[in-house]
Design a protein around this nucleic acid. Structure first.
Lengths: 145, 145
DNA sequence: CTACGTGCAAACGGTTTGCACTAGA
DNA sequence: TCTAGTGCAAACCGTTTGCACGTAG
Protein backbone atom coordinates (compact mmCIF):
# COMPACT_ATOMS: atom_id res chain seq x y z
CA UNK A 1 0.00 0.00 0.00
CA UNK A 2 0.68 3.63 -0.36
CA UNK A 3 3.95 3.94 -2.20
CA UNK A 4 2.11 6.90 -3.60
CA UNK A 5 2.01 8.29 -0.08
CA UNK A 6 5.79 8.11 0.16
CA UNK A 7 6.02 9.72 -3.25
CA UNK A 8 3.81 12.57 -2.08
CA UNK A 9 5.95 12.97 1.02
CA UNK A 10 9.14 13.04 -1.02
CA UNK A 11 7.62 15.63 -3.34
CA UNK A 12 6.75 17.89 -0.44
CA UNK A 13 10.19 17.56 1.07
CA UNK A 14 11.94 18.33 -2.21
CA UNK A 15 9.69 21.25 -2.89
CA UNK A 16 10.95 22.68 0.37
CA UNK A 17 14.56 21.88 -0.53
CA UNK A 18 14.93 18.80 1.68
CA UNK A 19 15.68 15.10 1.09
CA UNK A 20 13.61 12.05 1.97
CA UNK A 21 16.40 10.28 3.85
CA UNK A 22 16.36 6.89 5.57
CA UNK A 23 15.92 8.38 8.99
CA UNK A 24 12.96 10.44 7.87
CA UNK A 25 11.41 7.45 6.15
CA UNK A 26 11.80 5.31 9.26
CA UNK A 27 10.08 8.00 11.29
CA UNK A 28 7.16 8.15 8.87
CA UNK A 29 6.82 4.38 8.82
CA UNK A 30 6.61 4.13 12.60
CA UNK A 31 3.90 6.75 12.51
CA UNK A 32 1.94 5.00 9.77
CA UNK A 33 2.15 1.67 11.56
CA UNK A 34 0.76 3.18 14.75
CA UNK A 35 -2.28 4.68 13.03
CA UNK A 36 -2.65 7.33 15.73
CA UNK A 37 -0.70 10.34 16.98
CA UNK A 38 2.48 9.37 18.82
CA UNK A 39 4.67 11.16 21.32
CA UNK A 40 8.37 11.57 20.62
CA UNK A 41 9.05 9.00 23.31
CA UNK A 42 6.78 6.50 21.54
CA UNK A 43 8.47 7.21 18.21
CA UNK A 44 11.89 6.54 19.73
CA UNK A 45 10.72 3.35 21.46
CA UNK A 46 9.06 1.89 18.40
CA UNK A 47 11.60 2.93 15.78
CA UNK A 48 14.95 1.27 15.17
CA UNK A 49 17.95 3.56 14.89
CA UNK A 50 16.14 6.80 15.61
CA UNK A 51 18.09 9.27 17.70
CA UNK A 52 16.48 11.92 19.84
CA UNK A 53 18.08 14.94 18.24
CA UNK A 54 17.46 13.77 14.68
CA UNK A 55 13.83 13.02 15.47
CA UNK A 56 13.30 16.51 16.81
CA UNK A 57 15.16 18.09 13.91
CA UNK A 58 13.22 16.02 11.44
CA UNK A 59 9.92 16.91 13.06
CA UNK A 60 10.82 20.49 12.32
CA UNK A 61 11.72 19.78 8.71
CA UNK A 62 8.74 17.53 8.10
CA UNK A 63 6.38 20.01 9.66
CA UNK A 64 7.78 22.88 7.61
CA UNK A 65 7.37 20.72 4.51
CA UNK A 66 3.72 20.09 5.43
CA UNK A 67 4.24 16.35 5.89
CA UNK A 68 3.63 16.20 9.62
CA UNK A 69 1.80 18.15 12.23
CA UNK A 70 2.50 18.61 15.89
CA UNK A 71 -0.37 18.37 18.33
CA UNK A 72 -0.03 20.23 21.61
CA UNK A 73 -0.90 18.46 24.83
CA UNK A 74 -1.34 19.43 28.45
CA UNK A 75 0.10 16.18 29.72
CA UNK A 76 3.71 15.84 30.71
CA UNK A 77 4.61 13.49 27.89
CA UNK A 78 5.44 16.20 25.39
CA UNK A 79 4.26 16.93 21.89
CA UNK A 80 2.40 14.42 19.72
CA UNK A 81 2.93 13.93 16.01
CA UNK A 82 0.66 12.89 13.17
CA UNK A 83 0.56 13.02 9.39
CA UNK A 84 -0.49 16.33 7.89
CA UNK A 85 -4.22 16.56 7.23
CA UNK A 86 -3.65 16.91 3.47
CA UNK A 87 -2.09 13.43 3.51
CA UNK A 88 -4.16 11.71 6.21
CA UNK A 89 -7.56 13.24 5.51
CA UNK A 90 -9.48 15.65 7.67
CA UNK A 91 -10.16 14.29 11.11
CA UNK A 92 -10.21 15.22 14.77
CA UNK A 93 -9.30 13.68 18.11
CA UNK A 94 -10.79 12.12 21.17
CA UNK A 95 -8.59 12.83 24.18
CA UNK A 96 -9.02 10.35 27.03
CA UNK A 97 -8.38 12.10 30.33
CA UNK A 98 -7.63 8.80 32.01
CA UNK A 99 -5.10 7.06 29.74
CA UNK A 100 -4.07 10.20 27.85
CA UNK A 101 -4.31 8.54 24.48
CA UNK A 102 -5.54 10.36 21.37
CA UNK A 103 -7.96 8.55 19.09
CA UNK A 104 -8.67 9.67 15.54
CA UNK A 105 -12.27 10.33 14.53
CA UNK A 106 -13.92 11.56 11.36
CA UNK A 107 -16.91 13.82 11.81
CA UNK A 108 -20.10 13.70 9.75
CA UNK A 109 -19.80 15.93 6.69
CA UNK A 110 -22.57 18.20 7.93
CA UNK A 111 -20.61 19.03 11.08
CA UNK A 112 -17.46 19.81 9.10
CA UNK A 113 -19.56 22.03 6.90
CA UNK A 114 -20.91 23.89 9.91
CA UNK A 115 -17.37 24.34 11.19
CA UNK A 116 -16.10 25.68 7.88
CA UNK A 117 -18.96 28.12 7.74
CA UNK A 118 -18.19 29.21 11.30
CA UNK A 119 -14.55 29.83 10.31
CA UNK A 120 -15.60 32.09 7.47
CA UNK A 121 -18.07 33.92 9.69
CA UNK A 122 -15.33 34.55 12.25
CA UNK A 123 -13.09 35.84 9.49
CA UNK A 124 -15.71 38.32 8.34
CA UNK A 125 -16.51 39.42 11.89
CA UNK A 126 -13.02 39.74 13.35
CA UNK A 127 -10.54 39.99 10.48
CA UNK A 128 -8.76 36.87 11.75
CA UNK A 129 -7.67 34.84 8.70
CA UNK A 130 -8.52 31.24 9.63
CA UNK A 131 -6.40 28.69 7.76
CA UNK A 132 -7.78 25.67 9.55
CA UNK A 133 -9.40 24.34 12.67
CA UNK A 134 -8.89 21.68 15.27
CA UNK A 135 -11.63 20.05 17.32
CA UNK A 136 -10.89 17.94 20.32
CA UNK A 137 -13.41 16.01 22.39
CA UNK A 138 -12.27 15.22 25.88
CA UNK A 139 -13.71 12.66 28.20
CA UNK A 140 -13.08 8.99 28.84
CA UNK A 141 -12.56 6.22 26.33
CA UNK A 142 -14.56 3.02 26.43
CA UNK A 143 -11.87 0.93 28.10
CA UNK A 144 -11.13 3.49 30.82
CA UNK A 145 -14.74 4.01 31.94
CA UNK B 1 -18.32 43.75 39.47
CA UNK B 2 -18.42 40.09 40.09
CA UNK B 3 -17.91 39.62 43.76
CA UNK B 4 -20.29 36.82 43.00
CA UNK B 5 -17.59 35.37 40.76
CA UNK B 6 -15.14 35.30 43.65
CA UNK B 7 -17.83 33.75 45.81
CA UNK B 8 -18.36 31.05 43.22
CA UNK B 9 -14.63 30.40 43.08
CA UNK B 10 -14.39 30.19 46.85
CA UNK B 11 -17.30 27.77 46.91
CA UNK B 12 -15.65 25.49 44.40
CA UNK B 13 -12.36 25.55 46.27
CA UNK B 14 -14.01 24.77 49.59
CA UNK B 15 -16.06 22.01 48.08
CA UNK B 16 -12.74 20.41 47.13
CA UNK B 17 -11.28 21.03 50.60
CA UNK B 18 -9.12 24.02 49.68
CA UNK B 19 -8.93 27.68 50.73
CA UNK B 20 -9.29 30.83 48.67
CA UNK B 21 -6.02 32.38 49.87
CA UNK B 22 -4.48 35.73 48.92
CA UNK B 23 -2.07 34.18 46.47
CA UNK B 24 -4.85 32.34 44.69
CA UNK B 25 -6.98 35.45 44.60
CA UNK B 26 -4.13 37.51 43.15
CA UNK B 27 -3.65 34.87 40.46
CA UNK B 28 -7.33 34.96 39.54
CA UNK B 29 -7.37 38.76 39.46
CA UNK B 30 -4.43 38.94 37.06
CA UNK B 31 -6.26 36.51 34.83
CA UNK B 32 -9.53 38.45 34.97
CA UNK B 33 -7.77 41.71 34.21
CA UNK B 34 -6.11 40.22 31.14
CA UNK B 35 -9.38 38.96 29.67
CA UNK B 36 -7.60 36.28 27.66
CA UNK B 37 -5.60 33.12 28.35
CA UNK B 38 -2.17 33.83 29.85
CA UNK B 39 1.03 31.85 30.04
CA UNK B 40 2.62 31.22 33.41
CA UNK B 41 5.36 33.69 32.46
CA UNK B 42 2.74 36.36 31.81
CA UNK B 43 1.01 35.61 35.10
CA UNK B 44 4.29 36.02 36.96
CA UNK B 45 5.18 39.25 35.14
CA UNK B 46 1.80 40.87 35.70
CA UNK B 47 1.15 39.74 39.22
CA UNK B 48 2.75 41.18 42.34
CA UNK B 49 4.14 38.70 44.82
CA UNK B 50 3.47 35.57 42.82
CA UNK B 51 6.16 32.93 43.03
CA UNK B 52 6.78 30.33 40.35
CA UNK B 53 6.29 27.26 42.45
CA UNK B 54 3.13 28.53 44.13
CA UNK B 55 1.65 29.51 40.79
CA UNK B 56 2.21 26.02 39.42
CA UNK B 57 0.90 24.38 42.57
CA UNK B 58 -2.14 26.65 42.56
CA UNK B 59 -2.85 25.95 38.92
CA UNK B 60 -3.10 22.32 39.92
CA UNK B 61 -5.42 23.05 42.84
CA UNK B 62 -7.56 25.52 40.90
CA UNK B 63 -7.86 23.16 37.99
CA UNK B 64 -8.83 20.25 40.21
CA UNK B 65 -11.45 22.51 41.83
CA UNK B 66 -12.83 23.37 38.39
CA UNK B 67 -11.94 27.05 38.67
CA UNK B 68 -9.28 27.14 35.96
CA UNK B 69 -8.39 25.26 32.87
CA UNK B 70 -5.04 24.67 31.23
CA UNK B 71 -4.75 25.06 27.48
CA UNK B 72 -2.02 23.10 25.75
CA UNK B 73 0.17 24.84 23.21
CA UNK B 74 2.78 23.79 20.67
CA UNK B 75 4.82 26.91 21.19
CA UNK B 76 7.78 27.02 23.53
CA UNK B 77 6.14 29.37 25.99
CA UNK B 78 4.45 26.70 28.04
CA UNK B 79 0.91 26.11 29.14
CA UNK B 80 -1.78 28.79 29.05
CA UNK B 81 -4.42 29.32 31.69
CA UNK B 82 -7.99 30.58 31.62
CA UNK B 83 -11.10 30.54 33.79
CA UNK B 84 -13.13 27.36 33.69
CA UNK B 85 -15.88 27.38 31.10
CA UNK B 86 -18.59 27.08 33.77
CA UNK B 87 -17.43 30.44 35.14
CA UNK B 88 -16.37 32.25 31.96
CA UNK B 89 -19.02 30.99 29.57
CA UNK B 90 -18.61 28.64 26.64
CA UNK B 91 -16.14 29.95 24.10
CA UNK B 92 -13.27 28.93 21.86
CA UNK B 93 -9.95 30.31 20.66
CA UNK B 94 -8.27 31.89 17.70
CA UNK B 95 -4.60 30.96 17.66
CA UNK B 96 -2.40 33.38 15.70
CA UNK B 97 0.53 31.51 14.20
CA UNK B 98 2.53 34.71 13.94
CA UNK B 99 2.30 36.34 17.36
CA UNK B 100 1.18 33.20 19.20
CA UNK B 101 -1.58 34.96 21.08
CA UNK B 102 -4.91 33.31 21.87
CA UNK B 103 -8.07 35.34 21.33
CA UNK B 104 -11.42 34.35 22.83
CA UNK B 105 -14.40 33.95 20.53
CA UNK B 106 -18.01 32.91 21.03
CA UNK B 107 -19.56 30.82 18.30
CA UNK B 108 -23.09 31.19 16.96
CA UNK B 109 -25.50 29.05 18.96
CA UNK B 110 -26.29 26.91 15.93
CA UNK B 111 -22.65 25.88 15.59
CA UNK B 112 -22.42 24.98 19.26
CA UNK B 113 -25.57 22.95 18.83
CA UNK B 114 -24.06 21.06 15.90
CA UNK B 115 -20.95 20.38 17.96
CA UNK B 116 -22.94 19.08 20.91
CA UNK B 117 -24.90 16.81 18.65
CA UNK B 118 -21.66 15.56 17.10
CA UNK B 119 -20.32 14.75 20.57
CA UNK B 120 -23.36 12.67 21.38
CA UNK B 121 -23.15 10.91 18.02
CA UNK B 122 -19.51 10.03 18.66
CA UNK B 123 -20.48 8.72 22.08
CA UNK B 124 -23.12 6.43 20.60
CA UNK B 125 -20.81 5.26 17.82
CA UNK B 126 -17.57 4.69 19.74
CA UNK B 127 -18.41 4.40 23.43
CA UNK B 128 -16.17 7.38 24.18
CA UNK B 129 -17.85 9.44 26.91
CA UNK B 130 -17.37 13.04 25.77
CA UNK B 131 -17.47 15.53 28.65
CA UNK B 132 -16.66 18.55 26.56
CA UNK B 133 -15.04 19.87 23.44
CA UNK B 134 -12.47 22.42 22.41
CA UNK B 135 -12.35 24.13 19.03
CA UNK B 136 -9.36 26.11 17.92
CA UNK B 137 -9.06 28.13 14.73
CA UNK B 138 -5.53 28.75 13.60
CA UNK B 139 -4.36 31.34 11.16
CA UNK B 140 -3.26 34.94 11.43
CA UNK B 141 -4.82 37.73 13.42
CA UNK B 142 -5.75 41.05 11.86
CA UNK B 143 -2.69 42.91 13.09
CA UNK B 144 -0.20 40.24 11.99
CA UNK B 145 -1.46 39.91 8.42
C1' DC C 1 33.91 18.33 -3.36
C1' DT C 2 30.19 20.42 -0.83
C1' DA C 3 26.10 20.89 1.46
C1' DC C 4 22.83 18.36 3.97
C1' DG C 5 21.89 14.99 7.52
C1' DT C 6 23.11 12.32 11.76
C1' DG C 7 24.55 11.03 16.61
C1' DC C 8 26.45 12.11 20.92
C1' DA C 9 26.73 14.81 24.82
C1' DA C 10 26.14 19.13 26.87
C1' DA C 11 23.17 23.13 27.47
C1' DC C 12 18.57 25.16 27.98
C1' DG C 13 14.26 26.27 30.09
C1' DG C 14 9.65 25.19 31.69
C1' DT C 15 7.89 22.55 35.51
C1' DT C 16 8.20 19.93 39.85
C1' DT C 17 9.81 18.93 44.41
C1' DG C 18 12.18 19.04 49.21
C1' DC C 19 12.33 21.67 53.02
C1' DA C 20 11.88 25.25 56.28
C1' DC C 21 8.77 28.94 57.25
C1' DT C 22 4.07 31.48 57.34
C1' DA C 23 -0.78 32.12 57.68
C1' DG C 24 -5.56 30.90 58.09
C1' DA C 25 -9.47 28.46 60.81
C1' DT D 1 -2.61 24.65 67.70
C1' DC D 2 -2.48 22.40 63.62
C1' DT D 3 -2.92 21.80 58.85
C1' DA D 4 -2.77 24.04 54.38
C1' DG D 5 -0.13 27.18 51.75
C1' DT D 6 4.21 29.70 50.42
C1' DG D 7 9.03 30.79 48.73
C1' DC D 8 13.57 29.50 47.66
C1' DA D 9 16.73 26.67 45.46
C1' DA D 10 17.75 22.38 43.55
C1' DA D 11 16.21 18.58 40.75
C1' DC D 12 13.83 16.91 36.72
C1' DC D 13 13.02 16.03 32.02
C1' DG D 14 11.54 17.24 27.33
C1' DT D 15 13.79 19.80 23.83
C1' DT D 16 17.58 22.30 21.51
C1' DT D 17 22.26 23.07 20.12
C1' DG D 18 27.51 22.57 19.14
C1' DC D 19 30.43 19.82 16.99
C1' DA D 20 32.57 16.10 14.58
C1' DC D 21 31.46 12.56 11.35
C1' DG D 22 28.71 10.30 7.54
C1' DT D 23 26.30 10.47 3.16
C1' DA D 24 23.87 11.85 -1.07
C1' DG D 25 24.33 14.27 -5.39
Amino acid sequence: MADSLHDAIEARLEQAGNRYTRGRRRLIEVLLEAGRPLTVRELLERGERLSTSSVYRNLGVLEASRVLRQIPSVGDDGVRVELHEDLAGQHHHLDCSSCGQLIDIVLPAEVELALSRACRAVQRATGFRADGHRLELFGMCRSCQ
